Lab assay of single mutants.
Amino acid sequence: CHSECLGNCSQPDDPTKCVACRNFYLDGRCVETCPPPYYHFQDWRCVNFSFCQDLHHKCKNSRRQGCHQYVIHNNKCIPECPSGYTMNSSNLLCTPCLGPCPKVCHLLEGEKTIDSVTSAQELRGCTVINGSLIINIRGGNNLAAELEANLGLIEEISGYLKIRRSYALVSLSFFRKLRLIRGETLEIGNYSFYALDNQNLRQLWDWSKHNLTITQGKLFFHYNPKLCLSEIHKMEEVSGTKGRQERNDIALKTNGDQASCENELLKFSYIRTSFDKILLRWEPYWPPDFRDLLGFMLFYKEAPYQNVTEFDGQDACGSNSWTVVDIDPPLRSNDPKSQNHPGWLMRGLKPWTQYAIFVKTLVTFSDERRTYGAKSDIIYVQTDATNPSVPLDPISVSNSSSQIILKWKPPSDPNGNITHYLVFWERQAEDSELFELDYCLKGLKLPSRTWSPPFESEDSQKHNQSEYEDSAGECCSCPKTDSQILKELEESSFRKTFEDYLHNVVFVPRKT
């Protein structure tokens, strides 16, 4: 048989008469490798580009789960590009990614509803959504962080984005990388972005840091009482949809009607710091009717980097990364020049730590249904340095008659930039024990000054392991946590139920 035959053949030295091919099969003959313009397919066939392209389009058009959109890589027609490569849609070739590779997620039936953290986790790592997304989240724990972890990498949506009755959302900033909504599939009414009845939605994105392009379709905003109209108009300008909307697409009466839409800028007039305090004062603000001013709200939190936005980490279910302080308005003076500047002394802060701070007014709604208010920009203030805590785990070892090696770990709280350490030492008198000992005694162990690591005695271990207080009263049991108490109650309830079950099964009433 021919060298490319495997198993047997019907005619000697003829690659077209093989029972099976050793390498690849091409047009009725066995070959060692697939010549151009053919590609290896499933490690035994040679196919042309049209064959591989037909497989790709067949799966793409069917949208069946589990099928493969075949691509070409290293002269092979394979189910998908290997790690580190992405497909070129024009020629199906796998090309190296520039940075992290995109991950295209194809949605069944063309859309997916995100109504819980669990459903959001199914899209973790996706960068391109081939379909439409509907966000409908009523509640949950730590929602802002969970949504950002699972949806934060999405850069492109081919269909539309719909935010509907998501009472738990305060902001859409968890879509931190969303840059493009194509609108290839539109919501009824030709809408590519749809926001309806979101009672706590206050911000779409921080438009000073976020760009969003909507290729096709219109915007729809109705019944978002805490979303200011200025935020919607800003989205029109940034996304390129200005002029597409009709009169009733953006409701003037049901958007922002319960919001404090600040239209003035508060400026800080005085800032002073110490290692654990920050004193702030800002310019006074009074609405047209000074009785509408209820006070100020001061927001602050630790910020290692200057990239904080107002609604980071917030949701309507209680999660809030900001510390909020309510401040009463100052006494009002008739003389504008003698107006008191409101302020606040922030206490209990960490030394040498940068804080993000902003302040906003708290006002009631005027009778004319106009909203007044003022808010400052987010500023960054760093507390002063102070003395560091003591170095940890000092170790001293003498390696000769004239040297001592000293080692330690950095302090747990540096409280500033540590530039150097101060080492103090003092000579001590020799131990009298060394002169009084009889060095001729056998088995004498000389006193040693070398360091030995501390260890816990058996008594201390027994005390720590004991669940009861000892007789001397030195140790006591740790208080039980809520989960331990709940577990004990469940076990007790189970024992009672099981005992009742045994009584009912074992003891049967005697027939009379």
Rank of each mutant, 00 (worst) to 15 (best):
I395R: 05
S208I: 10
S333V: 11
D206E: 07
A259H: 14
T254F: 09
P288D: 07
P336I: 08
Q403C: 04
K226P: 02
Q216P: 05
L143G: 15
L123A: 07
Y300R: 12
E283T: 04
D328G: 06
W344G: 10
D292R: 04
G159S: 04
S338C: 15
L227E: 00
Y372S: 02
W207R: 04
Q121C: 04
F174N: 02
I250S: 10
N248S: 12
A149H: 11
G313Y: 13
T254C: 08
C261Q: 02
K177L: 07
S398F: 15
R369H: 06
G139L: 05
R370T: 07
I378E: 05
W286V: 14
D328P: 15
H341G: 13
L151K: 00
S173Y: 13
N136K: 04
N340R: 03
Y305A: 05
Y194W: 12
L147C: 03
L133G: 00
T118M: 14
E187D: 14
T273W: 08
D115M: 03
R332M: 07
Y380E: 02
Q403K: 11
N224R: 00
D289E: 02
G240R: 14
K253M: 10
N150A: 04
R332L: 10
G313N: 12
K350N: 12
E156G: 10
F311W: 12
K234C: 12
S171K: 07
P388V: 00
I188V: 07
C105T: 00
A195R: 01
R176V: 12
K242T: 07
E264F: 08
E146A: 07
L229N: 01
D206G: 08
R370L: 05
S158P: 00
K177T: 07
K162E: 05
N224S: 03
Q199T: 08
Y372K: 06
E148G: 08
S173C: 11
D206C: 07
P336S: 11
V104L: 03
N190Y: 04
K253A: 12
K337W: 14
L178F: 05
N190L: 06
N320T: 09
S208V: 08
H341M: 09
Y194R: 12
K375V: 03
R369T: 11
L331N: 11
D292M: 12
Y194D: 12
N334K: 12
F220Q: 04
L219I: 08
A259V: 07
G159D: 00
S401E: 06
Q354N: 08
T118A: 02
P391H: 00
D312P: 07
V324Y: 09
L279K: 08
I163T: 09
H210P: 15
Q258D: 04
T254P: 09
S192P: 06
K112V: 08
T215R: 12
D367K: 14
